[in-house]
């Protein structure tokens, strides 16, 4: 395929009139670009349309919802948000958001700390049994989640953690998510050891080296871990469904389902309004972290 960069760029510098071949190539490239961008725009719109419709429909009345196919509400109203926030339970939706945060915040912070520690251990130190332990970590990565649900449930029942937030965040906060450990290890392997050695020569012990040197270098990876953990936990439905039984402890993912269960005629506008609110934290966090998430590691300290 001919792209814009394929064009002979010297021609303009040498200020010679473009030849017929150059003109042909340039026209071809322009047509190509138009086709390519039109296609991308159309596909992009198709993909984002459900989201646009969701936001638009959340401002519609319940009766308008299925009567008009467009996403733009004819009589925009906030009623869906107001009613949805009140919920059909004694609690407002704010309560469910708070519940979600009680799971997400310790889980995300715990994951960041524990995964960094474990990954640092695996990536930088030699210790007996390292290979077997690492193989175990990778093995749990390959294990389908569902397989461990029942034994885990029995375990937490015996500990007496049912209907509490603990089973939802404690395993992850103890580096239970092999995927994140693996991700940080891979990132750490790409960072040269020289800076850590320099820190050790400067008199830093292992923990100081980790905190002052390794963690700042690992920041993009750690932020990615936090971001994934935040979004996945926010969206987690099965976990809370299994472990949480009282409505006052429901996180938002369960609370959304609640509105479908309890009313006979579903108030779709309320459900959609609350879905929009539920999406908001994940989107906000993603856009805030985007810079670090995308930014690779800056290797200014090392050359060669």
């Amino acid at each position: 395929m001919v792209t814009l960069s394929d064009l002979p760029s010297q021609s303009s510098r040498e200020r010679t009139p473009p030849t017929a071949l150059e003109q042909k190539l340039r026209r071809k490239a322009r047509i190509n670009a138009v086709i390519r961008y039109s296609l991308l725009t159309v596909i992009g719109l198709v993909m984002i349309y459900p989201l646009i419709w969701l936001v638009g429909a959340s401002f519609k009345t319940n009766s308008e919802m299925f009567s008009s196919p467009g996403f733009w509400p004819s009589e925009p109203t906030l009623q869906g948000y107001i009613d949805g926030w009140q919920t059909s339970t004694p609690y407002t939706f704010g309560r469910f958001f708070l519940n979600s945060m009680w799971i997400i915040i310790p889980k995300t912070i715990g994951t960041a700390i524990s995964c960094t520690l474990v990954a640092y251990g695996f990536a930088r130190f030699e210790f007996p049994g390292k290979k077997i332990l690492f193989a175990t970590v990778i093995a749990t990565l390959l294990l389908p989640n569902v397989v461990t649900r029942i034994p885990q449930y029995l375990l937490f029942r015996d500990i007496g953690w049912l209907d509490s937030f603990l089973p939802l965040w404690v395993p992850s906060a103890l580096a239970g998510d092999a995927f994140f450990v693996f991700m940080v290890i891979q990132f750490l392997r790409a960072i040269p050891r020289d800076m850590e050695e320099a820190a050790r020569v400067d008199g830093a012990n292992t923990l100081q080296t980790l905190i002052f040197i390794v963690v700042p270098l690992l920041m993009p990876a750690i932020i990615s871990v936090c971001l994934f953990q935040f979004m996945w936990t926010m969206n987690d439905f099965l976990g809370p469904l299994i472990y949480i039984s009282s409505v006052e402890k429901y996180p938002v993912s369960l609370a959304l389902k609640l509105s479908i269960d309890t009313t006979e005629a579903f108030a779709w506008n309320q459900i959609l309004a609350m879905s929009v609110l539920t999406l908001a934290p994940s989107l906000t966090v993603f856009f805030l972290a985007q810079k670090y998430f995308i930014e690779g590691i800056s290797t200014g300290g090392v050359k060669g």
């Binding site: 040269p192 020289d194 800076m195 050695e197 320099a198 820190a199 050790r200 020569v201 400067d202 008199g203 830093a204 012990n205 002052f212 040197i213 700042p216 270098l217 800056s298 290797t299 200014g300 300290g301 090392v302 050359k303 060669g304």
Partner: peptide
């Protein structure tokens, strides 16, 4: 290393980038 009373200069400088 920190207790040996040494200082080291590395080939690729190993400055702390942050």
């Amino acid at each position: 290393p920190g207790k040996r009373g040494i200082a080291m200069v590395f080939q690729n400088y190993a400055l702390y980038p942050h």
